[in-house]
Amino acid sequence: MLAFIVRRALQAIGVLLAVGIIAFAMFRFAGDPVNQIVSIDTPAAEREQVRRSLGLDDPVPVQMARYLVRTAQGDFGVSYQFRQPVSDLLAERMPATLELALCATIFATVFGVLMGVYSGLKRDSVLAKVFQTISLIGISLPTFLIGILLIYLFAVTLGWLPSYGRGDTVQLGWWSTGLLTGSGLKALIMPSITLGLFQMTLIMRIVRAEMLEVLRTDYIKFARARGLTTRAIHFGHALKNTLVPVITIVGLQFGSVIAFAIITETVFQWPGMGLLFVQAVQNVDIPIMAAYLMLVALIFVAINLAVDILYTVVDPRLRTTIRQPT
């Protein structure tokens, strides 16, 4: 098990190294960074001094090595537009995005599994067909449209929920949370639904399909022949067997939820990393873009590793395979 984790961690470092090189390449493709720092009428001598102070006169491999080492230490450089360290900017924005992504994922998982189990067990009921229709809407409507429709209905027309921002936040050390105030929680509802709707429909469809598949298996037939209660068969024996694909989807989608929170954060003016990234794109703020790229890669790699470990918790057959690698 430990060897497995170490091996996967080494692979993860390889992935991150590759992403780091791509992130570094962005600096070189986007033209001379000095032009973006100084104004047009800065004299050449001063430009040269800025160039030297930033280490931009060194050979490319040296610059790259320096960039990678600094990145590994959590130093992503200084933002062109804010003149602040990128790591500070990200740390400030990260709690907002993570809280949003977490709420969206919890919403998607809870409702997705419930609706999926229901429509798998009662395939022909009216409610199951309603769920199927909702899932079609969830899969086909673009995120920004759902966000705008929700804002129109609940913020503009009914006035129940705020249309933008995080509401009041409480500072817990460096982490600012909106989960402890009423207005913070209220502000979370619509962005979470907007962000999680696609995942919810995905989870629902997978749970439904898996449930139908598992209910046909011999061990379910044998469980029925042993006279176990319907509840034990459906929620003990069948549901647990549908969980492996659900873990994959929830895990991998959690990465996507964080990475693609950009649209939701823009629609709801949510002060998270996604909004920061959009502003960075508009202002060609490459240090932020590169750092965001690295961060998303790190999150994906970490989640992949967590998902692999979770598999072995759910499915005992994988434990032996992992212990004896081929």
Binding site: T217, D218, Y219, K221, F222, A223, A225, H237, K240, N241, V314, D315, P316, R317
Partner: peptide, 12 residues
């Protein structure tokens, strides 16, 4: 049943 390989729930 016929097939003991599939009659038992693999996760329990």
């Amino acid at each position: 049943f016929q097939d003991p390989l599939t009659s038992l729930n693999p996760l329990y």
